[in-house]
Every structure is written in C-alpha cells, then in structure tokens.
Amino acid sequence: MDATQAVILTIITASTPLLLAAIGELVTERSGVLNLGVEGMMVMGAVCGFAAAYTTGNPYIGILAGVLGGVALSFFFAILTQTLATNQVATGLALTLLGLGLSGLIGESFVGLPGVKLQQLSIPFLSTIPFIGPILFGQDILVYTSIALIFGTTYVLFKTRIGLIIRSVGDNHNSAHALGYNVIAVRYACIMFGGACSGLSGAYLSLAYTPQWIENMTAGRGWVALALVVFSTWLPKRLAIGAYLFGAVWIMGLYVQALGFGIPSQFLSSLPYVVTIIALVIISGNKTLTRVNTPACIGQTFVPDR
C-alpha cells in the first residue's frame, strides 16, 4: 500500500462519522429544528452499538442498536421541543449532557473489552483494481451508507413531495400549517431521522473506527458535525465536501508532525477547529450562499393554534 493511498483511506475513516451525523442534522434543520444534542445522540449510539455487538458477537446487530440508541434520545428531544414547546438550544444542550452521562453509566461494564470489528465489504474484482480499488470498493457498509445517504437525501429533499413538505415546514411553519400539513409530525420524523444518523455515526466509532467502548469517545465530533451543516449551507453534496476536507485537515495535522518539522503539536491539534471557524465565517458572511438555503424557521418553536 503506498503512502498516498494510506492517507486517503485514513481520511475516509476520519470523515465518515462526521458525515453520517451531519447528514441527519441537515435533514432535521431543513425541517426548521436545531438539535444541538448531536454529540449526546452520537455517544449513545456508540455505547448501544458496542454493547449489542459485544453481547451478540454480530456487528450488524450493533449497528441496529446504535441507531435505536440515537433514535431513543432524539425522541426525548422531540417530545420536549415539539410537544412541550421548550427552547431548542437549551434542550439540545441538555440532550448532550444526558447522553454523555447515560452512556458512561451504561458502558461502565464494557470498558476495556475488545470489541467486534465491522469488516470491510470488499466488492469482488473491483476492489482489486490498483490504487482506487481499496479506496472505492474496499470499505465497510457504513462508509457506503454515508455515500448513499448523501445522494438519497439530495433526491428526497429536492425531487420528491416529502422533501417539499419538509422544506416548506422549515421555511415557514405557519403557512405550512395553513396548507394543512402537520408541522409537529413532520418535525418529529425529521428529528428522529437525525437521531438515527447520529446513532449510526456513533456505532461507526465503536465498531469500525476504534472497535471498543470508551467514555466520551465522540470527543467533540458531534459539534464539528453541527458546524459542517452550516458550512454546507444545508446542501448534502457540499456537506460531503466539507466532511472530507475537515477529515483531511485533521489527518494532515498528524501527518505533518510525523514528518518532524518541530511545530508544537498543540498548534497542529487546534488546526481543525481554527479551520472550522474560518469556514463558518466565510460561508456565513456570504449572503448569496446562505440566504437561499437557510431554513427560515430554524430554531423557532411552533405551537399550533386550534
């Protein structure tokens, strides 16, 4: 395996969890809901995924459990923000705190155990193509899923009636309500889709990235995913670009260190965060990029009048 190929493979592994979580949040935000609890849902996905895979020995059951863990937590969020009309920002923060604590409690007896590794699904013949074979056709199922989700959400959001409803709920909930759409129900569904994706992303961490369970193993990735959604201006394809760029910056920080230039490692470690801030600034400052796609009702509470 040559060096460039190794770096590309490493970048894909580092980017996939970000991409998975961010794509779910993108759909949630398209429906006008800001869920800051991505980190909490992700870490729940990680612990549920690990626990189920370890107990059954089957990583695919682990993936399913991870999804369920994320959905369960997002359901909490939906009840509070949609049914009880609580502040979305505060509820999202609470979700993160709860997820981190609860996952630690659940995972206590699973710390330090060797996990079940999600195997690569190499596509016959194609994966043996030199260089691009392993990169394109030698990944595990979650990497393929993340790619499928990008195209899937793009199609659903912009080419189908369901997508139209989601976007209209996110852009103007009052008129969507007036048109007879059930705003709350649509948002419930989108929040739980977001939870499922975050759970998937967590499961990727504890089953594929580093097959083990450690407390707080998401290590801030949920927040990066949130930033990526803004960076993408709520377009799935741009989201993919953003996620892979971020993954590349992250890995290059380590790569440059190993070359031995003597730059303090703390500066290289903070590089991804600096880049995220700069990206946010560039995207947010550009009105033509953001105005068209930003869901106008994002973060606003909707209580239907009867």
Binding site: L84, T91, A94, L97, L98, L100, G101, G104, L105, E108
Partner: peptide, 20 residues
C-alpha cells in the same frame, strides 16, 4: 460511579425546561 452525578445534571436540565 461519578457518571450518576452527570446523568442527574442532564435530567435536571430536562425537567427544568419541561416545567418552564
């Protein structure tokens, strides 16, 4: 375990928001 305290804090914040 010390995680219990963290769960408490999360639940507390949830209930505050719900009660509000």
């Amino acid at each position: 375990s010390d995680k219990t305290a963290q769960v408490f804090q999360g639940i507390l914040l949830f209930f505050i928001l719900a009660c509000d």
